[in-house]
């Protein structure tokens, strides 16, 4: 056991765990943020996707010891009150079915859009390689495009305002 300090959703947390403990379990069991899900534990499914310094990573394969000084954002910290354009698009498109994969899908989509505000279908295929056993894929694609539109409109609005 060792002590680690990490910043999650803007808040500092000190945890006492084995250095090889995956971030996923630190979030779920030590910090109590259960929005990030366990699906495979081996990096295949993406249900555990969170942001580390703004980048989408699979938290089941990232040991806590490699995270010192990094900033972690989970689904709970993505926005206040569903404010993120991806969450809004997900609600508008009624994307989730069982919902279990959706935290990961949303975090992956948010990271994709922060890098490329107008992704093509190919970009989506490449970045949204997460499993949804309920098969919400077509709605996910649609919602990413809708979120992208919202972001572009906002950007245009800001430019226009200057």
């Amino acid at each position: 056991m060792s002590s680690f300090t990490l910043t999650v959703n803007g808040k500092k947390h000190a945890v006492d765990v084995d250095p090889d403990t995956p971030l996923l379990w630190v979030l779920r069991d030590s910090i109590g943020l259960t929005g990030t899900k366990y699906g495979c534990g081996s990096g295949y499914c993406g249900s555990c996707t969170v942001h580390v310094d703004g980048e989408a990573i699979r938290s089941c394969t990232m040991a806590i010891e490699s995270l010192s000084g990094k900033k972690v954002t989970t689904i709970e910290g993505l926005s206040m009150n569903f404010g993120h354009p991806v969450q809004q698009a997900w609600i508008a498109g009624d994307v989730p079915q069982c919902g279990y994969c959706q935290s990961g899908q949303i975090m992956a989509a948010a990271a994709l859009l922060s890098e490329k505000s107008h992704p093509t279908d190919e970009d989506i295929n490449a970045s949204m390689n997460l499993i949804c056993r309920c098969g919400t894929y077509n709605r996910i694609r649609e919602a990413v495009h809708v979120a992208s539109e919202t972001i572009l409109k906002k950007e245009l609005g800001q430019k226009g305002g200057k």
Partner: peptide
């Protein structure tokens, strides 16, 4: 139950 499934609050 869609809103609770997009902000991590849904309880599985």
């Amino acid at each position: 139950d869609t809103p609770e499934k997009v902000n991590g609050s849904a309880v599985f």
